[in-house]
Simulated assay, not measured.
Amino acid sequence: MDDLDSEIIGILRENGRISFSALGAAVGLSTNAASARVRKLETSGVIVGYRAILADDTPLGPLGLEAFIDVRLRADADSDTFLHAALAEPEVRDAVHVTGPYDYLVHVSVADSTHLNGLLHRLKHRAGAGQTQTRLALRAPTTSRD
């Protein structure tokens, strides 16, 4: 996976219904090349599906959880591989490389503790996380500071 794939994933996370033509134009590829890239991401398991998100299903609804996960990578894990795998998870809002005892701080929004547990499992078994520490947000941001 390269920077172009990451850009494509970012666009698809925002609009999974974008046409290959519009996607290609957004990243500087032809329609066929954009389609081929997406198919490759699907075949390799980076993209595992698409879904409709209904208003009642939003992660920060009445039963939703927002959390921050400190991640220490396994010694054999690759930092770029972890970052790409984490950002490919639909619940991950952001992941940043940090200083200190942990390698990454991952901001997530999940429907409930069961979904959080599943995400933690995937980060450990597929992405290379060796140790995690999770902190739950007690309230979601109410305004932006733009």
Rank of each mutant, 00 (worst) to 15 (best):
N15Y: 06
R17Q: 13
I18H: 02
S19E: 00
S19R: 12
F20D: 04
S21A: 07
A22S: 13
L23C: 02
L23I: 01
G24T: 03
G24Y: 06
A25H: 09
A25K: 13
A25M: 03
A26Q: 00
G28K: 07
L29Y: 01
L29H: 00
S30A: 07
T31V: 02
T31I: 05
A33R: 12
A33S: 14
A33N: 10
S35I: 04
S35T: 08
R37C: 05
R39D: 10
R39M: 06
L41C: 04
E42Q: 14
V48I: 11
Y50V: 05
R51H: 10
A52H: 15
A52R: 15
I53V: 13
L54S: 14
D56V: 03
D56G: 04
D56W: 06
D57K: 13
T58I: 15
T58K: 15
G61P: 07
L63I: 07
L63F: 08
G64H: 05
G64I: 02
G64F: 12
E66Y: 10
F68D: 11
F68H: 14
D70R: 05
D70M: 08
R72W: 11
L73I: 03
R74F: 09
D76V: 05
D76N: 06
D78N: 14
S79G: 07
F82S: 07
F82Q: 07
F82D: 10
H84I: 08
A85L: 13
L87K: 05
A88W: 06
E89K: 12
P90M: 04
E91C: 06
V92M: 01
R93W: 10
D94H: 14
D94V: 02
A95P: 09
A95I: 01
H97Y: 11
H97L: 08
H97C: 01
V98I: 04
V98N: 00
V98A: 04
T99D: 12
G100Q: 02
P101G: 02
Y102K: 07
Y104R: 02
Y104W: 10
L105I: 04
L105F: 05
L105P: 01
V106A: 00
V106P: 06
H107I: 08
H107V: 10
V108W: 09
V108Y: 04
V110D: 02
A111Y: 07
D112F: 15
D112R: 14
S113K: 15
T114C: 08
H115P: 06
L116K: 13
N117R: 12
G118T: 08
G118N: 14
G118C: 05
L119S: 00
L119E: 03
H121A: 07
K124T: 01
H125C: 02
R126K: 14
A127K: 12
A127C: 11
A127I: 06
A127G: 09
G128F: 06
A129Q: 07
T134K: 03
T134Q: 03
L138Y: 12
L138M: 14
P141L: 06
T143H: 11
T143I: 04
R145Y: 14
D146S: 10
